[in-house]
Computed example of a mutant assay.
Amino acid sequence: MKAKNKLPGTIQVKRGRYYWMVKLPGKEKRKMIKICPPGEDKALSAEKDISLAQNIAWQIYRQAKRKAGPKQSESLSVDEVIGLFLEWAKGYYINAAGEPTREAENCNIALRDLQMLYGAKDIDSITYHDILAARKLLIDRKYNRNYINQRVGIWKRMFAWALENRYCSASVKSEVWAIGSLKKNRCVAAESSPVHPAPHWAVKKVLPYLSENMKALVQFIELTGARPGEAIIVRPCDIKRLSAKCWVYWPFQHKNKHKNRHRFIVLGPRAIRIIKPFMLQYKKKSEEFLFPGKKGGYYSRTAISYAIRKAIDKINQSEDEDVPHWSPNQLRHSCGTRVRKKFGADAARIILGHSNPAGITDRYTRDAIIEEEIKQAKKVMRQIG
């Protein structure tokens, strides 16, 4: 049985599975290839629709074409350019250890929709209306406005990179960059909810259900205002002991290191008491991680979130009390809010590691700002209202 299509070669069914007889780019002879779904070794079952086999075959063909090297005279497909961009992103968005950061994965996720909609289309044929249609797809999925703007921003970045490397024309890049950001209250996209501090009573309720390492991590973030990504990589060699009641932690990698910004996290007596038992297990200059994961190395950020969510679900199933769900980053908001109330906005900025005195820090301390404004308004209205 043969099924003809627009692909080079022919798709065939053998022993109840799809195969593809084709001469791939860069190869000298035709060859029978298994049409395997991503991540699987077995060929796709013939019980599946042939259109799925065709889509997988197209992916195999484009991947082979990229490896063979594009001809400069040819116009590349959107899928080919995205593949080249993602390969570049893996080497560009890296941390101090040379590992790809989350931004490389963010690019991969954001560009999937363009691949799905326009993967087989020539990149030089992409228009303003194509990008608008892709953005409307995100709006229809009920994504919030900020998230949609971030995704479209990655699309723009990819087309700018494509122009720089002469994979698309300047007119195409101009078409894409003509798309403006969605504005608040000026579009139908949903707004994201403001992030509030994690309730301290809810944090205390969860702690007994966490492992010792995870419990220490949660307390460390809440007390110091460290980012979860900074807390999971604490090493004894990165901590400088200024006195018995004050230590300074210098993360060897952090969010803004590529911008040559410094980041330090000061530990007070309570935070020192949390990590001291772990410090005693290592030498002062040890490069081992203070809170190692179960499989060695350090915990991922998602591992902390998963442990917290699992603990809260367990509490809510076994007890009458309804504990609200909270995330590790809300602990950072808790610390920033607490600092701002007692010591002011500039102290909160320093503790949270923000270079901008306003803006970002205000987002993290929103509840404290509202309290300050209400307090000030009450003082005024007692006299004039």
Score class of each variant (00 low, 15 high):
Lys6Asn: 15
Leu7Ile: 10
Thr10Lys: 09
Thr10Gly: 04
Val13Arg: 06
Lys14Trp: 12
Tyr19Gln: 06
Tyr19Ile: 06
Tyr19Ser: 03
Val22Asn: 03
Lys23Gly: 10
Leu24Gly: 09
Pro25Asn: 00
Pro25Val: 08
Lys27Ser: 15
Lys29Met: 09
Lys29Cys: 08
Pro37Gly: 05
Pro38Lys: 09
Glu40Lys: 14
Lys42Gln: 11
Leu44Gly: 00
Glu47Ala: 05
Ser51His: 12
Ala57His: 02
Gln59Ser: 14
Ile60Trp: 08
Tyr61Trp: 12
Gln63Cys: 10
Ala64His: 07
Arg66Met: 13
Lys67Thr: 12
Lys67Phe: 03
Gly69Val: 11
Phe85Glu: 00
Gly91Arg: 01
Asn95Leu: 03
Glu99Val: 08
Asn106Gln: 13
Ile109Arg: 14
Ala110Met: 10
Ala110Trp: 05
Met116Ile: 02
Leu117Cys: 09
Gly119Phe: 01
Ile123Pro: 01
Ile126Tyr: 02
Ile126His: 05
Thr127Asp: 05
Asp130Met: 02
Leu132Gln: 13
Ala134Ile: 04
Lys136Pro: 00
Lys136Arg: 13
Leu138Ser: 08
Leu138Arg: 06
Asp140Ile: 04
Arg141Phe: 07
Asn144Gln: 03
Asn146Cys: 07
Asn149Leu: 00
Arg151Asn: 13
Arg151Trp: 06
Val152Cys: 04
Met158Asp: 05
Phe159Glu: 00
Glu164Tyr: 08
Tyr167Ser: 03
Cys168Ser: 09
Cys168Met: 07
Ser169Met: 14
Leu182Ala: 03
Lys183Gly: 00
Lys184Pro: 05
Val188Thr: 14
Val188Cys: 04
Ala189Val: 01
Ala190Tyr: 01
Glu191Trp: 10
Pro197Cys: 06
Pro199Gln: 09
Glu222Lys: 09
Glu222Val: 00
Pro228Asp: 00
Glu230Tyr: 08
Glu230Asp: 15
Ala231His: 02
Ala231Thr: 04
Ile233His: 01
Cys237Ser: 13
Lys245Pro: 06
Cys246Val: 09
Trp247Leu: 01
Val248Ala: 11
Trp250Lys: 15
Pro251Met: 10
Asn260Ala: 13
His262Thr: 14
His262Ile: 11
His262Gly: 13
Ala271Cys: 08
Ile272Ala: 01
Ile274Asp: 01
Ile274Gln: 02
Ile275Leu: 02
Ile275Ala: 06
Lys276Trp: 11
Met279Gln: 11
Gln281Ser: 11
Gln281Val: 04
Tyr282Ser: 06
Pro292Phe: 07
Lys294Ala: 09
Gly296Asn: 06
Gly296Cys: 00
Gly296Tyr: 10
Tyr298Phe: 12
Tyr299His: 01
Tyr299Arg: 01
Ser300Pro: 04
Thr302Ile: 01
Tyr306Ala: 08
Ala307Arg: 00
Lys310Trp: 10
Lys314Cys: 13
Gln317Leu: 11
Glu319Ala: 06
Glu319Asp: 13
Asp320Ser: 12
Asp322Gln: 14
Pro324Ile: 04
Pro328Leu: 02
Gln330Asp: 09
Leu331Asn: 05
Leu331Lys: 00
Arg332Glu: 11
Val339Met: 08
Lys342Gly: 02
Ala347Asn: 05
Arg349Gln: 14
Leu352Lys: 10
Gly353Thr: 07
Ser355Trp: 11
Ile360Gly: 07
Arg363Trp: 02
Ile369Gln: 01
Ile370Asp: 15
Glu373Gly: 02
Met381Gln: 12
Gln383Trp: 11
